[in-house]
């Protein structure tokens, strides 16, 4: 996979350029994403100010602001376009020629996905992250920043592997979007994007500790804000890393199996 590094770099650059072709559309998309991040901030402002409460499950209002800004930053930052690409390639049949090119198909997906991530990272993720940290008033130590970076890599890996696995269903289904919509809808609840996980029932929180989902946003936000113990961070990081390794192995084996079912006309 690393023999033709120039090829992957070229795919990455092409991916970046293709996303900047329609600049006004991109700016509007960015504004919509920022506005979407503000929705829960405004909802919780109304809840806190309306009820006069100062803390809900340990979250003060400034921390809730930070939570939703940082959580949105992470979710946008780790999102890749792997799924959409696989849908187009497999259903459109271009995967057949992509498979015989001198660069690996999965490597090409990752390079292009990374281009998408880079754009989100610069345009949406970083500004939201800065706003979120500034609002919390928490001083981030070097150690916390390093742990956060490690967690982010695990989260990105998990997101990519799950996207890849769902993308392979394009071989057997007409569209991947239904499966993807169900899956990411469930994940959105279980990784803390909808609400901090501490707001969910305790029994559900306990179950979630055995899944990779908290490592896909909630742990990262909690690490920065310092709302969970070191033990929790270590446990979810370890759990996330193990899940990533297992899922990556499974994805490798699964791809070897499903690619045999790909025809020149796609899936």
């Amino acid at each position: 996979m690393f023999e033709n590094i120039d090829g992957y770099y070229a795919v990455f650059i092409a991916g970046l350029k293709s996303r900047l072709v329609y600049k006004k559309d991109w700016v509007m998309w960015m504004l919509v994403r920022f506005a979407a991040a503000l929705v829960m901030v405004l909802v919780f402002t109304a809840i806190y100010l309306g009820s006069g409460t100062t803390s809900i499950k340990g979250f003060t209002l400034p921390f809730i602001y930070s939570y939703f800004f940082i959580e949105n930053a992470i979710w946008f930052g780790i999102s890749t376009d792997i799924l959409g690409q696989m849908q187009d390639d497999i259903q459109g049949g271009t995967v057949a020629s992509a498979l015989i090119k001198p660069i690996s198909y999965t490597g090409r997906l990752l390079s292009n996905g990374l281009a998408n991530t880079s754009m989100s990272l610069i345009a949406v993720c970083l500004p939201l992250l800065v706003v979120g940290i500034a609002l919390s008033g928490v001083a981030i130590s070097l150690q916390t920043a390093l742990v956060f970076a490690g967690e982010l890599v695990i989260a990105y890996g998990l997101y990519s592997v799950f996207s890849f696995l769902i993308g392979t269903t394009a071989v057997y289904l007409v569209e991947v979007w239904a499966v993807s919509s169900i899956y990411w809808g469930i994940v959105g609840i279980m990784n803390g994007v909808l609400m901090p996980l501490s707001f969910l029932p305790v029994w559900l929180q306990n179950i979630l500790t055995f899944t990779p989902f908290p490592a896909m946003a909630y742990t990262e936000v909690s690490t920065l804000l310092g709302t969970v113990s070191s033990q929790y961070i270590i446990e979810t990081m370890a759990s996330g890393a193990i899940w990533l390794a297992v899922l990556a192995c499974f994805a490798y084996l699964w791809w070897g199996r499903v690619r045999k079912d790909i025809t020149s006309a796609g899936g």
């Binding site: 809840i47 009820s51 469930i186 909808l194």
Partner: peptide
């Protein structure tokens, strides 16, 4: 599932606070 999402959000909000 899309129709259940707001239901879950509203239910969680009212389970931890007095709501809007």
């Amino acid at each position: 599932f899309i129709s259940l999402y707001p239901f879950i959000a509203v239910t969680v909000i009212y389970s931890v606070s007095t709501g809007i």
